[in-house]
């Protein structure tokens, strides 16, 4: 390690610390403050009410909320597994110098990332339409005019649909991260293993994967967080539906969509800012501690190895 003066360490850290303190921490502080008040849109008050809002959320943590959280976790697990699989496979394929036309393949595979999701989500919604969506229309050419998958009206298929869209949107992120990290795998290492006669899987597991982990781990953690907090894309496609009963959350009502439909957005004239802030704090605490524990466990494993 390099031995330097503390002041110099600080100098290198300073730009990032200032950024984080001013832009990341102040909204968190503000939200925390709001969560202890009684502020709503209609009352406009900022009276201190202690933990009232927190006890509110624990009191309404009924079966709906548990269902929503469980459903969101399932979504996160499925999506992340697919992100990793597709991202890794594409990155490995795109890193293969023997493949011809690499610039074309690389650009083509990153296109989903280049187009604004506000538009592509709506396109997907159309592709999934039961009667006139191209996916079902193409299917009918092969399977007969009566066939069709109820993408947007059946709970199971709607879940599948939003997984597909999310994979489509997010795998390029993993492709880029992994492709970038693959550059840190010296080709000599692979060749050495090759000479040793290790097969492809062995080479991948013992040489490539350990070098990719430092890049994959934070990407996986952050993607899990953003998928857990997913809103825009899913909202544009299903709005949380399909709803099977108006008093129950729909099959794709993930946490943020559930909250939006319940107490934010156009569905609540009197916005309960304090309650929303409290919810944000609770989500932050839960996701934050899971992140922290995962990392700490990861650290201790690293130091053992």
């Amino acid at each position: 390690m390099l031995r330097v003066k503390r002041s110099q360490i600080l100098l290198y850290l300073l730009p990032m610390l200032i950024t984080i303190a001013v832009i990341n921490l102040t909204p968190i502080g503000y939200t925390l403050y709001l969560s202890f008040t009684n502020n709503t849109l209609f009352n406009g008050e900022y009276n201190f009410v202690g933990l009232t809002n927190y006890s509110y959320w624990f009191s309404v943590a009924n079966t709906d909320l548990l269902y929503v959280i469980g459903n969101t976790l399932l979504y996160v697990v499925v999506c992340i597994a697919l992100f990793l699989l597709v991202g890794l496979a594409t990155a490995l394929a795109l890193n293969n110098q023997k493949i011809k036309g690499l610039p074309f393949w690389r650009a083509a595979l990153l296109v989903p990332w280049a187009t604004p999701y506000a538009i592509t989500s709506l396109i997907w919604k159309f592709l999934f339409n039961y009667d006139f969506g191209p996916i079902n229309q193409i299917g009918r050419i092969f399977l007969g005019p009566q066939s069709g998958i109820p993408w947007m009206t059946d709970p199971f298929w709607a879940f599948v649909a939003v997984v597909i869209v999310n994979v489509w949107l997010s795998y390029p992120f993993f492709t880029v991260v992994i492709l970038g990290a693959l550059q840190s795998v010296p080709s000599e290492l692979g060749e050495a293993a090759n000479v040793d006669g290790a097969n492809a899987w062995q080479r991948f597991r013992s040489v490539t994967l350990p070098l990719l982990l430092p890049a994959i781990t934070p990407a996986t953690i952050l993607s899990s967080i953003t998928t857990f907090q997913m809103f825009g894309v899913v909202y544009l496609i299903t709005a949380g539906g399909p709803v099977t009963s108006a008093d129950k959350p729909g099959a794709t009502s993930f946490v943020m969509i559930y909250i939006y439909n319940k107490i934010l957005g156009d569905n609540a004239a009197n916005i309960h800012y304090a309650q929303i802030a409290t919810f944000a704090v609770l989500i932050f605490i839960i996701l934050g501690s899971v992140t922290f524990l995962t990392r700490s466990l990861g650290d201790s494993k690293e130091s053992l190895a």
Partner: peptide, 9 residues
């Protein structure tokens, strides 16, 4: 910085 942030808030 934390305390600065709280102040800002």
């Amino acid at each position: 910085f934390l305390s600065l942030a709280v102040l800002c808030a």
